[in-house]
Write a protein that binds this DNA or RNA. Structure first.
Lengths: 196, 196
DNA sequence: GTCTATAAAACGATAGAC
DNA sequence: GTCTATCGTTTTATAGAC
């Protein structure tokens, strides 16, 4: 074969996205050039435009796919009619696991919101809000049932999500703690902070 | 006077930093140009170089001053020989207050670490670590005294700091809750998550 | 589908006049 | 201390050959 250039069995598209994902997560969207992405993929910069109309769309699509995957995975995991405490444990463990499994996607989704154009921002923000609202409704149900001792479901939603998402600032696979242990440690802290 | 250009009573230096602070916080370091900063200040781009040797130094100095102010303020506020629970409440209230008072500085200090050159990063990271360590030592003391029910002081440090710093994602001055109320709500959650 | 080449604009930073 | 002007580089994105 000895093919030194040209298409690679139609896999260039995914490879462009993977390269962009890693570089955006490491250096930030604004700090990464199309030439850097092309170099990582092994093509010239012009070739990238076969796979994205522009740099902004590349970011938006990465973020949309992530948020869509998050909401889809959550829908598959959520169990209807769980009592509030069980529903909260289920949510906490899901959130920790999903975030640990996709650190680059999560990082971009949090850090690069400001790099989105207005209409793209609005779409991503709506998806993020949908996710937040599921936790808020669990907390609200628990307040009403008397299971949770909280003044304000919305504020507690932010506090819990901040704490859980923070796992990505320190967790490294293969470290001292396993995923299951991390899930349990965080669940214990959330449980005690929230449950009456 | 009708002075339309020239120096402004020696205040240009601080105004450059203030403009850079706001723009970096809003758009990110890499996305902001020296020309944007100059326009905000009301000078031409070349004049900025009377106040900073380059763009990187401007970022570093903003971050260093913030971390220095944080550690100085903390030293003034900390009380020696407090029992662990009181020391933790003191830390939580301090952290919330300081973060709410300086949202732009805090945001940059968290978001732009990756934009720092290696040697600048090392210096800022050391300051950040010093601050983290104070919370960790409070938690460790409380574990040893039996006041706190935690498996791991370091992990709990990350969890608590993430939760507290998250206040900046939603708090707006003049909103529904006062600073004092926010402090108390967060302290109640931290207390219950940590205290045995 | 990728290449080379380039257009058009923006970038950080500097020089020299005032 | 700020201006105007500019250097040299890099940027996103496009055009046309293969």
């Amino acid at each position: 074969m000895a093919r030194t250039q040209g298409s690679h069995s139609g896999t260039t598209g995914p490879r462009v996205r993977k390269a962009a994902l890693g570089l955006f997560a490491q250096h930030g969207f604004a700090a990464v050039s199309m030439r850097q992405i092309a170099k990582e993929v092994g093509v010239q910069a012009g070739a990238l435009y076969n796979y994205t109309p522009d740099k902004q769309s590349l970011l938006y699509e990465l973020m949309f796919e992530h948020m869509d995957a998050l909401l889809t995975a959550r829908r598959e995991e959520a169990v209807a009619d769980m009592p509030p405490i069980k529903a909260l444990e289920n949510f906490v463990r899901f959130h920790i696991r999903f975030h640990i499994e996709k650190p680059d996607e999560v990082f971009i989704a949090y850090m690069e919101l400001r790099a989105l154009e207005d209409s793209n921002f609005a779409k991503i923000e709506a998806l993020r809000r949908t996710y937040e609202n599921e936790l808020e409704s669990i907390l609200q149900r628990g307040i009403e049932s008397g299971d949770f001792a909280l003044d304000d479901a919305r504020l507690a939603t932010f506090a819990v999500l901040s704490m859980l998402t923070g796992v990505n600032t320190w967790f490294r696979a293969g470290g001292r703690l396993s995923l299951a242990e991390v899930e349990t440690v965080y669940w214990n802290m959330v449980r005690r902070a929230v449950v009456a």
